[in-house]
């Protein structure tokens, strides 16, 4: 068990390091001159002298050879220092920390919507014997993942804020302001959960051990809840890391649509001005969240699946 966990942690650290490296390669190695962009953005189009550019480069360490830059930055990152923003001069960690709480709000409420919507659709669709209901429910997820998120958000605003006047269209004040963003964010994610869980459920329901249970005289509800669900959840859990990452990434669009502050807005504005340190900080942060969620899933796995702890299933 301890070995299992240690391996997982080591793997997680490896993924994080690699994510840092990939983002470094993408952001610093690819063509594009962030300093020029930054200088242009900062001085409202006034021409900037080459000397000024060099000074800026020196200030951010961009005049060093790339490998030196990588070493210094990685070392700093290991100590929690992701540098300072090109655009605002703020500490990147502080900027992300400030932007996080409102994003967490919509991400968590989105997750709630997703899990409730996703599992309800999957369970009812596999349980019901009413053919049309099953078909409608099975069709919902593929419909939901086909709709552009930003458009769904805008249509919800048009309907509930402008037509019906029930909910605020923009801003982050009060729990009402959370409803539409949470639905917008949770819908595609919930659809994903529904698809994975429904597929997993219907596979499990075809397993011979389900026949064994039925042959004992167990009723349909018992078969679904006592036998099928426990087995079906296991493969469905593997997408949880992906789901949470999706919610985080979805905030980029949702916060823009609903004009809310948060990590997503920070991302959009940073990309707009090629603020490399902030973008890299956000990318690594997303990878960190993904890795942490997967670690938690790995911890939960042995509880749900006895085959892992006893090591017999190799």
């Amino acid at each position: 068990m301890a070995v299992y966990l240690l391996r997982r942690v080591a793997l997680a650290v490896g993924v994080l390091w690699a994510a840092y490296t990939v983002s470094f390669v993408v952001l610093y190695l690819l063509p594009g001159d962030p300093v020029a962009t930054m200088a242009a953005g900062g001085s409202d189009g006034e021409p900037v002298s080459p000397a000024q550019l060099d000074a800026l480069r020196a200030r951010y360490g961009l005049d060093q050879p790339l490998i030196t830059q990588y070493g210094t930055k990685l070392w700093a990152a290991l100590h929690g220092d992701f540098g300072t923003s090109f655009a605002t001069g703020r500490d990147v960690r502080g900027a992300i920390g400030d932007a996080l709480p409102p994003t967490l709000q919509i991400a968590l409420s989105g997750l709630l919507v997703a899990i409730v919507f996703g599992s309800a659709v999957a369970l009812v669709a596999t349980y019901t014997r009413v053919r049309w209901l099953r078909q409608v429910l099975m069709g919902l997820p593929s419909l939901a993942v086909s709709l552009p998120v930003f458009w769904v958000g805008l249509m919800l605003v048009q309907l509930f804020s402008f037509r019906l006047g029930l909910l605020p269209s923009v801003g982050a004040r009060g729990p009402e302001a959370l409803v539409l963003p949470a639905i917008t964010l949770g819908l595609p994610t919930g659809a994903l959960i529904a698809q994975v869980l429904a597929k997993s459920m219907s596979q499990v329901l075809d397993e011979p051990y389900v026949t064994t249970a039925r042959a004992k005289g167990v009723g349909e509800a018992g078969v679904h809840l006592r036998h099928a669900l426990g087995n079906a959840v296991i493969p469905a859990l593997t997408v949880l890391g992906y789901v949470v990452g999706n919610l985080l990434a979805g905030s980029v669009v949702v916060e823009t649509v609903f004009t809310r502050p948060g990590l997503g807005r920070l991302t959009v504005s940073s990309v707009g001005v090629q603020d490399i340190p902030v973008v890299q900080g956000i990318v690594v942060f997303a990878a960190l969240v993904f890795v942490l969620v997967n670690l938690v899933v790995d911890l939960v796995y042995p509880v749900l699946d006895p085959r892992i702890t006893t090591g017999a299933a190799v």
Binding site: G14, V15, A18, A19, V22, S23, V26, L27, Y28, L29, L30, P31, G32, G241, Y242, G245, N246, L248, A249, G250, V252, V253, T267, S270, V271, Q274, D275, I276, V279, Q280, I282, V283, A286, A287, F290, V291
Partner: peptide
């Protein structure tokens, strides 16, 4: 496959945004 795992660890839209930051 380790490399692919890393790509999967970063949500697609963030990875695209990082690339756009670099490419323009």
């Amino acid at each position: 496959m380790r490399f692919v795992d890393v790509l999967l660890a970063i949500p697609a839209i963030l990875l695209s945004l990082a690339l756009i930051t670099a490419l323009g």
